[in-house]
Amino acid sequence: MREFAFSLVLMLIAHCAAAFEIEDHRWFGADNASQTVTILSTADIRFFAPMIESFLATNPAVAVDYTVASSTEVMRAIHAERRPFDLVISSAMDLQTKLANDGFVQRHEPDGAHVMADWAVWNDMVFAFTQEAAAIVLSNKVFEDLAVPRSRQELIALLRENPDLFRGKVGTYDIRQSGLGYLFATQDTRASDTYWRLTEVMGGLDAKLYCCSSDMIDAVEDGTLAVAYNVLQSYAINRQDTGRFTVVLPSDFSTVMLRSVVIPNNAPTVEMARLFLDHMLGQAFGPTGNAALGQSALDQRNEASLHRIRLGPGLLVFLDQLKKRAFLQEWTNAILQP
């Protein structure tokens, strides 16, 4: 049985790999569990494991099949290929909203035990369970002698004043690949024009482009990068114990992303999906909720400078084919300077 289940998982992975691209996969809980929750997620296993483990502690008969993919791949798996998953977790709020808006998602009546914030639910379909800010990560080695910039303006000034120091050592998301990077970029432009100026400055310094936050943090840690812009603060804080970098939330405004979860229409075990979803919301909003998902760091900050991205159809605007093409064009022109 165990072998069979394992080979089944392997087959599934192999099958999936044929279409959408999987980054990671892990099976939580007993191999012979009577029921399985299948989750497709953009969150790193390391980041999400506490949530699964607390769920398994109260539901020992259930196993969790956790698959990690990039937000674009998640979108492809659900929207284009209609893969059956019980839950879809993504940091790309716009794509989650589009899934819901386009009718790929079923409604869920959350367990009334915990009070959810208004901004955390859209249409009873999309449920936010963390809020995570985009941060600037600075290499401590490079910034030994330099004043740490507290805002985008200070960062722009710093980069302009020290082009030789930073050439080839600034990095940010490749928003053509990363759904989250695209979301951060588009929301930054809504909040302020400084994003375009910063992008142009970074483009002028031969910015390196990354698919994901972890890679950017790795690059800062190993000294490849001096500055990484729009890195997920929660990921960075998780790895700050190395003492090699500083995490800065820009004081002019901090774009805050809501990591959200949806139940697809074709979820194979809907009851399990609802159970797990309620568990997630309990962790996020209930009195026993843990702070492992990076919320505590945000709570201390002034709400006024938080630019929390609102769930809703507004997010569809930057997914518009024409709009996206134009935006990417403009961005590419700014970041890839000849």
Binding site: N123, G312, P313, G314, V317, D320, L322, A326
Partner: peptide, 20 residues
Amino acid sequence: SVDLPYSALSMLDSVTDERV
């Protein structure tokens, strides 16, 4: 060329959550 204004769709969702 059509540049979709952000408010064009977000305004439809201001009171109740609506699919748009």
